[in-house]
Design a protein around this nucleic acid. Structure first.
Lengths: 340, 340
DNA sequence: TTGTAGGCGTTATCAG
DNA sequence: CTGATAACGCCTACAA
C-alpha cells in the first residue's frame, strides 16, 4: 500500500494564497508576518493538519532535536530511574530521546553508539567511561557532544555527571572494618568493560589494605547482576574453609541475591554473616534484613545529565557535575559475632 | 561554532571518480556495481568515514527506521522489562527506538504521541487503550501502524499484544473467595485513563458479585503506584470498623506497599489479613511473606509487540496476540482465621 | 511584508 | 554497468 500523501508546505501555501516562504515563516518566526496573513495561513495549517516533514527539516537544519542514550539495560532499576528522569528533562526541552542498550557488552555498545550517530542524534548520554579510545576519537571527530554518567573523575577532559564509585566503595569497606570485620569477601559485578564495577572493587580493596588487613583476608568473586548468580557466588563463599564474616556486594541486586540465598541455606544475616550493597534501590528496603548500602541520587543524575547535555548543545562547552553519595545503615551489617 | 562539515555522497564520488549515483548504489545494492569500481568506492567511503545523511535519507525514503514507544513510566519494573525486550527486538531488526513517557496522564500521552509522529516514527507502541477517539483518528489518518500492549480485547479492530486484565483479576478474586474470605477490599491503581487498572478493578468486582457476596463486603480504594501511598490506603482500610480479611491489590507495588505498612503497624500478613498482587515482578518474591500474584510475561510481550509492529510495517496488516497469565501462589494469601 | 530561487544530501528513473 | 538529472520538503538569503 502506498504511504499516505501528507500535506506539504506547498499545499498550505497554495490554499492560503501565499508563498511557501511565508508559510514557513508563520511557523518558525510568526512575528515577521502580518497578522491577517498569519491567521489565514495558520487556519489552513490546522485545517490540513500540516506537520513539517521531519527529514526535510533535519536536513536543512542540520540537527534532529534528538538525544541518544546508550545504557547497559533498562532492566536495572538504577538505569530505569535515571533514564526516566533524563527523558523527562529531554522532553521538557522539546527534544526526543533515542534509547539503545548494550547488555554490558563493549562491542554492542560501540555498535549502538554508531547507530545512534548515524541516526543523527545531536548529543549522547553514555554510562561510565570504559570504552575504546577509538570511539572517543569518533565522537570527537563528529563533534557530537556527550556526557558520561554514573561515574565521575576528578582530572579529566571529558564531561562526567556522576559520583565517585571508588570513594563510595572505599568508605563502605572502611565502615565494614570499623564494625570489626577482619575476614571479608566481595561479590563484585563483572568488571570487564564496566568502570563502575571496577572502581567499586578497587575502592573496597584499597580500603582493606589501608586498614592493614592481610591480602589473604579478602577474597573476590565476580558475578552477573542477577539474584541467582549472586546466590551462587554467595554459596561458594560461604562454603569456604574459613568463610568471611562480611560480604561487600557491588550493588544491591547482588546483595539481595546473596541474602535470599543465605535464607535458603539457613545462614542468618547479619548474625552469621554481614552483607552490604550499593545503589540504594527499592529492593534493599524490602528484603529482610534491610540492606546497608550506598545511596545514589539516580534521578537527579539523570535530570542533570540532560541539562548538562543541553548546555553543551547551546554553548559548545560542558562542565562535569559531581554528586555526593552517603551510606544508609540498615540491618544487614553488624559487628561479627565472636568465634562460636 | 560551526557544525562539522561531514563528507557527502558527492565528496566520495569526486574522490572515487564516479557519479553520486554509483556511490549510492555501492551502498544500497552493491551487486549492481562492477567489483573493481565498488572496491574503489568503498575504499574512499571508509577513508572519509562517510555515513549517509539521516535527514536526506529519511526524506527520500519516506521512512525513518524508527519506532516510537509511549509508556507511563520506565520507573515501574513491568514497563522497564517490557521496553527493554521491545528495544532489543527493534535493534535486532536494524531499527531504533524513540521513548517517551506519559506519567499515566492522558494529556501528556497525547502530546508525546504527536511529538513522536512529528519526529517521523514508522510505528508506535502504546500501553492500553483508554485514550480519546481523536487520537486514534489521528493515527488512522496518518496511517501510522501501532500496537496496544499490556491489555487485550477479544472483539476489536485494533491490534493488541497483551493479556486479559479483567479475566486475570477475576480469577484472582475468585481464588480469594475460595480461600473463604467474605469481607474483601481492593487497593486499585488510579483508574482514570488507565484501562488496565480499571479492568482489574472490574474483574475483581464481578468475581465477588458472581460469588454471591453482598456489595457492602467489598470496599475499594484507589492509590498511586508507590509504597507510601499504598501503605496509606492499607492503613485506612485496616482501621475500618470491620476490616476485611483480604485485600486484593491492583499490582505488586501496591501489594508490597501494603505489606510493608502492615509490618510497621504490627499487623500480620497473612494471619491477620491476606494480600494479593498482580504482575509478578521481583519485589513480590523478595518481600516477606512472598506475594501471591498474577504472573505476566512482560518480556515476551515486549518482544512480541515489536514483531507484530514489524509485520505491520511490512505487510500492512496486523494480528493481535494474546498472552496467558497464571496465578503464582506464595504466602501472602491464606484462609481467614475465625473470629477471635 | 512577501515572493523568488537556490541548495541541503539521497535515491530513483532513464538514457547511454 | 554507469552517469545525468529530477524529485523529496523545507529553509533562507536576497529581491521586490
Amino acid at each position: 500500500m502506498d504511504k499516505l500523501q501528507l500535506p506539504t508546505l506547498e499545499d498550505v501555501a497554495r490554499q492560503a494564497q501565499v508563498s511557501t516562504a511565508t508559510v514557513s515563516r508563520c511557523l518558525s518566526r510568526p512575528e515577521t508576518v502580518k497578522d491577517t496573513t498569519r491567521e489565514r495561513v495558520m487556519q489552513i495549517v490546522s485545517e490540513l493538519g500540516y506537520t513539517p516533514n521531519f527529514g526535510a527539516q533535519a536536513m536543512v537544519a542540520r540537527r534532529t532535536n534528538t538525544i541518544g542514550a546508550v545504557i547497559p539495560t533498562m532492566d536495572n532499576a538504577i538505569f530505569a530511574k535515571g533514564l526516566q528522569a533524563f527523558q523527562e528533562e529531554i522532553s521538557k526541552q522539546g527534544a526526543n530521546l533515542l534509547v539503545a542498550s548494550s547488555s554490558y557488552r563493549k562491542d554492542l555498545e560501540e555498535k549502538q553508539i554508531r547507530s545512534l550517530i548515524a541516526r543523527g542524534v545531536d548529543g549522547l548520554l553514555l554510562i561510565g567511561d570504559d570504552r575504546d579510545e577509538e570511539i572517543y576519537a569518533y565522537l570527537e571527530k563528529r563533534q557530537i557532544p556527550f556526557v558520561l554518567a554514573w561515574n565521575y573523575r576528578e582530572a579529566s577532559s571529558r564531561t562526567y555527571v556522576g559520583f565517585n564509585n571508588f570513594q563510595a566503595s572505599y568508605d563502605m569497606a572502611k565502615l565494614v572494618v570499623e564494625y570489626g570485620h577482619t575476614h571479608i569477601a566481595m561479590i563484585a559485578g563483572i568488571t570487564e568493560g564496566n568502570d563502575r564495577a571496577l572502581d567499586r572493587l578497587a575502592g573496597a580493596g584499597e580500603a582493606l589494605i589501608d586498614s592493614g588487613l592481610p591480602r589473604d583476608n579478602f577474597t573476590v568473586t565476580e558475578s552477573k547482576y542477577d539474584f541467582d548468580a549472586a546466590g551462587n557466588a554467595f554459596e561458594k563463599i560461604s562454603g569456604l574453609g574459613r568463610p568471611p564474616t562480611a560480604i561487600i556486594c557491588g550493588n544491591d541486586v547482588l546483595a539481595v541475591g546473596a541474602i535470599l540465598r543465605a535464607k535458603t541455606l539457613g545462614i542468618r544475616v547479619p548474625q552469621d554473616i554481614s552483607i552490604t550493597g550499593f545503589d540504594d534501590i527499592e529492593i534493599s528496603t524490602i528484603v529482610e534484613p534491610g540492606v546497608t548500602t550506598v545511596h545514589v541520587p539516580h534521578r537527579r543524575m539523570g535530570t542533570s545529565a540532560a541539562s548538562v547535555l543541553f548546555k553543551a548543545l547551546q554553548e559548545q562547552k560542558t562542565r562535569s557535575r559531581k554528586f555526593e553519595t552517603h551510606i544508609v545503615k540498615r540491618q544487614s551489617l553488624c559487628a561479627p559475632s565472636g568465634p562460636p
